[in-house]
Structure formats: C-alpha cells, structure tokens
Amino acid sequence: MEIFIQTLAKAIALGSIYAIMGLSFVLIFKGTQVLNFAAGAISMAGALFMSILIADRGFPFLPFTNPLAPADGETAGVALWIVHLMIALILAAILGLILERVAIRPMVGQPLFSMAVITLGLEIAIRPFNLDATAITGRSVGVPWGTESWELAGAIIPKSYVAAIIAAAIAFTGVYFFYRSRFGVAMRAVAFDQEAAMAQGINVGRVFAIAWGLGAALAALGAIFFAMAPWPPAGTVSLEIHPIWIFRVLPVIILGGLDSVAGAVAGGLLIAIFEIFAGQYLSQWTNILGPGYSTIVPYIVMLVVLLVRPYGLFGTEEIRRV
C-alpha cells in the first residue's frame, strides 16, 4: 500500500510537471500556430536565471547585486524563494518575447512545418549558451525544502512532489481563466482566423507576444520544478535535464491534442501515470521489455491513441478543404 501511494504521488507529481510544459506548448500553439521545439532551451534558460539570481546574487555583467538573495551557504525562505521564482519567470518571458519578435513574427502566415522548424533552429542556437553556463558545476536553484519529505500512512512523499502539484494547479487555473478573459478570447479568435481577427480590430502582434511571453514563463516554471530533489538534477540546473526534456513532453501534448488546455493536463497526468506505474509494476519483466523500457512507454501510448484518434484525445480535428 505504501508503495502504491508513493508511486501514485510520484506519477502525479511528474504528471504535473508534464502538464505545466504541456500548457506552455498549448498556449503558444493556440496563439501562434507554432509547435515550439525551442521549449527545452527556453526552459533551461529560465532555470538558469533562477540560479543566477539566487546563487550568484545578480547577473555578472550588471553593476548591482540582488539585495534579496540569501547569503552564502544559507537558503531562502519559501516566500523569498517565490519572489525570486517570479523574477526568473519574468526574465524567461522577456526571452520569449525577444525570440518571438526576432524569429516568429516575420514568419506569420507561413506553413506550420516551417514555423516548427524555425523553433528547432532556435533550440540548436540557444543550447550552447545554456550548456556553457552549466558546464563545470551544478548550479543551485536554492530550493528551500531541499530533500525534506512528509510521511503519509507509511509512504514517504517528498515536499517537491507536492510543490509541483500545487504549481501545476495554479498554472492550470491561471491559464483557464486567462482564456476566459477578454484577452483570451482575442487569442482564440486569432488562432481561429488571423485575418478575420484583424478585421475585428484585434492586435494580432500583441497576441503573438503575449502567447510567447506566457509560454516561455510556463516552460521555465516546469524546468525549475523539475530541477528539485529527488528528480535527477536534485536542486540544480544541470546538463542532464536539458537534452531529453522536450522529447519527453512531446507525447503529452500530442496525446492531449495540440490546442487543448484541458488536454495538456489530462495528457500529462495520463502519460506520467502510464510511465511511472509501468516502471514500478512491470519491473520484474525487464528481461523481456528491455532495460529502460519505461522511457518509451509514453511513445507507445501516444502511437496507440493517435491511430484511434488522429488529433489526440481533446484536439480539434482539422477540416480538410480542397
């Protein structure tokens, strides 16, 4: 029973992080029709901003230091940490805005695939800067609760898991209400038909900018919560999360449907539950399934779902015109 609870907690926590990343993809896709392959690089940059703020107490090329940051060897309190988190997210959003202005805006109206590949190019171009900053040592993101955990009916549940779940819940609520706001409606209109939206007086450029800003912030949020113990980088930004990150999330958004907010959350939870439970309960069959089989479970689930429902569980079916 403890094992079941532990596994479930881990699955939901991982699912929450997947969901945050999924929301980032969906926001950008719904607003701008771009499948953002650069999410990996952006999210890692966001986590790096966090580390620079909290561990280095300010950017090396700026003349002032961060007065809020905890002294050497101390950890920030939860409230202070959240303040830093917010600043890091804002910085990530600014990065998203810049990328959108430089690379995405000129491509408005181009085929979907060209837009997706542009982000692939961005990913490749940004990555060396990220890797460079983390090359030598792990960079701390100063998680206040470190490796602490709670006990629930004999099961040990790390605080990081709960934090990830809370973060995902807040992100989902935020995005949900955002879509119901006046601006969210504008965004949906733009996604539906750019020209018609323009004719209605909607500023399409601003919609693009907002979508990318929010998307980048969400991507950074996902990476920071994935950088906590006991997830592999354990409280630091490291080379480890980055290369694999985005390709673990792709099945999530495909499963949920590229343009569905609820789908991103459902897809994230579903994929994580399949992945973690398969890892936990099929482990005695590793000889048959092959080592590391749980890594490809998301892809198998994705393939099966797609062959039954080609636009994901919640995605909108494309109407094929001649």
Binding site: I3, T7, K10, I244, R248, E275, I276, A278, G279, Q280, L282, S283, Q284, T286, G290, P291, G292, Y293, S294, T295, I296, V297
Partner: peptide
Amino acid sequence: IDQVAGDDRTAVISQ
C-alpha cells in the same frame, strides 16, 4: 546490470 538506460529509472529504483 545494464538496467540503467533511458530517461526514466523507476523500474531500477523500485527493484
């Protein structure tokens, strides 16, 4: 032996 492969190691950890 050989079991730590891929990005998800839940199987190894549980065993």
